Computed example of a mutant assay.
Amino acid sequence: MPKRAFITGITGQDGSYLAELLLEKGYEVHGLVRRSSSFNRGRIDPIYLDASAGERLFLHYGDMTDGVSLVNLVHEIKPDEVYNLAAQSHVRVSFEIPEYTASADGIGTVRLLEALRAAKLDCRFYQASTSEMFGATPPPQDEHTLFYPRSPYAAAKLYAHWMTINYREAYDMYAVSGILFNHESPRRGESFVTRKITMAVAAIQAGHQDVLLLGNIDAVRDWGYAKEYVEGMWRMLQQDEPGDYVLATGVGTTVRDFCEQAFAHVGMDWRDYVIFNEAKYERPTEVDALIGDPAKAHEVLGWKAQTDIGALARLMVDADVAALSGGPFGGPAAGLA
């Protein structure tokens, strides 16, 4: 019998890459999908419709704010591995909807952990934690760095992180947290700054857009390639003992530098097109610098980021240029790579 995995947030960037990876490894994959009047499955549809996936990919309606649906799905699926990737993941938006963010990201994780505990399954659990939990703590940040969350999103994720540890220690569950630093791809949501930049590069080059509005371009982040990071998630659940791991490149890059590299890839000078509008994109509290130390992941998991920031910017620009021109990334699955 193949291993059975349950992925919440399967329609997101990480969820779609993880589904592909697990299917390649022979898993039966089940994914949680929120019901909506409009379809938002552009990332997962090509995988779902791929004949090679056969009868090994299944989508189920449910929600992280609905504990009953999670209990029912856990009992129905009986997973060997659970990857909790679902979240309201936009930091600035979390200031506008803090209660929902807490319910989906924080309490939602407890609902899922409790469903697994009550089902008494021999199951391994992965929690998607975030570098935003470090917030104002200076880099480099590793598994022992003090947390200092600076947004409702980060605070909700920190609650979920500690509850994962609590369930591991209190109930002897195989439960781990992956503290992932920023990881991007052509599948990144369009409201996130890297994708906003690469889409603007494609649109400006094609004559469809004149300028790009950005906020704090001096913020420093540790950016890697999402497709590589889901491999690290999987490796965390293959270890003999559960533990928490930082996944990062160890290299900090400013938004300014990413912007420069993305525009330069198509022969343009970013300074001719970028307009600063910090007031529009300002957060009540800012996080200045996040740079991870992935030494533990290197040593224990044998995982290391392979794609540097320049290569990442180029592959994202190429995908958005192709999507805009109706190339191989056009149509309903625009942005897939």
Rank of each mutant, 00 (worst) to 15 (best):
N216A: 05
E231H: 02
A86H: 01
H161N: 13
L146R: 09
A156V: 13
A102R: 07
T285Q: 04
M64Y: 07
N72K: 08
V220H: 00
E81F: 01
D288V: 07
A128G: 14
S69M: 00
I217T: 14
V317E: 00
E190N: 05
C259Q: 06
L336Y: 07
A313C: 12
R314D: 15
V251R: 04
T65R: 04
A53K: 02
W223L: 07
E55A: 14
G108W: 07
W162M: 14
L116K: 03
P46C: 04
A333H: 02
H161C: 11
S89E: 10
D272L: 09
Y245K: 10
A86K: 01
L113P: 05
W162A: 12
D257H: 13
S129F: 08
Y245W: 14
G135K: 03
L324F: 09
I107F: 02
E241T: 15
Q141P: 12
A202M: 00
M316K: 04
R271G: 11
F147Q: 12
E169Q: 10
A160N: 02
S38R: 11
A128C: 12
G178P: 06
G12S: 02
G243F: 05
Q238N: 15
D320H: 11
H144M: 14
A155P: 11
K120V: 15
T8D: 09
T11C: 06
Q261L: 15
E184M: 14
A279K: 07
F258Y: 04
F147H: 10
S52K: 03
V33K: 13
R188P: 07
G26H: 12
D288T: 12
E114H: 01
H30P: 14
P98Q: 12
L57F: 11
T145P: 05
A155W: 03
A311W: 00
H75S: 08
I309Q: 01
D308E: 06
S103Q: 15
F181T: 14
F192S: 03
S52A: 10
S52C: 01
E282P: 02
A119H: 00
P328E: 08
S52R: 04
L247E: 03
S185P: 05
R271Q: 14
T307L: 05
A160L: 06
R150P: 00
P149F: 04
E184F: 08
G250I: 05
L121G: 03
G327C: 07
P186N: 13
Y61G: 14
V287H: 01
L237R: 01
C259E: 10
L21K: 09
E228L: 09
G232C: 12
V300D: 06
A19M: 04
D272M: 13
E169V: 08
S38Q: 06
P294L: 15
T109G: 07
T254D: 08
M1C: 13
G250R: 04
G178D: 11
M316E: 11
A155Y: 00
